[in-house]
Design a binder for these strands. Structure first.
Lengths: 167, 167
DNA sequence: CTTAAGGTTCAATTATTATTGAACACAGCC
DNA sequence: GGCTGTGTTCAATAATAATTGAACCTTAAG
């Protein structure tokens, strides 16, 4: 959250730190590791693309962390890779549209869970037949149906959400 | 996820276990501890209210966990307390409307973060004046404004989301 | 061919979170 | 009073997740 040397001096650095901290909290809200927020935050606050080494220096994190964090951010679609010919290093810049970050999160983290939940429900409905006691069966039937309705709604609302958040 | 003695025998117990596992995953999706999902799951799958001791037996968890889990679920509004006169024990039942669980989560976990994010942005805007370089200032201005827009949208969308999920 | 810089991977370590269990409080009973 | 059942709290411990760092892969330069 600070420079590696721990003293933000210029106003710009203060602002960088605040943006950083904004994203630190932001990603934790959706259950992503803090370091992702830090990396994204640094890139978001930077007028020009940065190398992995820049991030390591800025945040005082290890090469492994930086590499893994950037990888994740790329699969989320929140960070782009920039290549300049005649420079071997690859640079990174934030995709400033937060919908990428949120959308990627929904796609990579939420959807699979939702899917597995729906599979579980399908299996449950099949098990239901084996329950003999009719009263108990009716009870389960109602509760399971309720879960199914909710699951369907969640499925429906996610695309709307993404559309709405898109800028 | 099983009986404390680890052998689900009747069909009903199999179904209970599946519902349980459904919620185990469900709560982790929104970053709540697994035990909350387990407790809620057991109550959701039970035709009648249960005591804390019932939960301890069923899930093989400690008294402390059960107490804390129920406390949390009550503050989320996902679980109700039921008192019978002439029984000293307090019983618990799930509020089957999942919007309670989700709504409580939004109220207790999301909103405060969102609020603190907005405070951070407000502070940021004030800092901005102190940046001298006009080009850099314009850059930060744009990025911060973008964050503000998104933050506002999130604020707007949460009530809609809750309304939509409400059954 | 050898060296070095940029990057990735993954087992080991560290930090964070959740769970336990022992101490405590309260209420009713003997 | 002392004893028992129900429930809470919180420091200690266990479980989980994130981070590191060493080994490794590529590519380009000397």
């Amino acid at each position: 959250m600070m420079n590696a040397d721990d003293k933000p001096s210029t106003e710009a650095e203060v602002i960088d730190d605040r943006i950083l901290s904004f994203f630190q909290d932001g990603v934790r809200m959706i259950g992503l590791p803090k370091s992702l927020g830090e990396i994204y935050g640094v890139l978001y606050a930077s007028p020009k693309p940065m190398t992995m080494q820049d991030l390591i220096n800025r945040l005082g994190i290890s090469k492994g962390s930086a590499s893994q964090g950037l990888k994740m951010l790329r699969t989320l679609g929140a960070v782009r890779q920039v290549d300049y010919r005649d420079d071997r290093k690859t640079y990174f810049e934030a995709d400033v549209e937060l919908k990428k970050l949120v959308g990627g999160f929904i796609r990579e983290e939420i959807r699979p869970h939702l899917k597995s939940g729906q599979d579980k429900l399908a299996r449950l409905e099949r098990e239901l037949d084996k329950v003999d006691d009719p009263e108990l069966k009716a009870f389960y039937e109602e509760r399971i149906k309720r879960l199914g309705r909710w699951s369907g709604k969640a499925n429906l609302v996610l695309p709307l959400l993404q559309k709405f958040l898109g800028e």
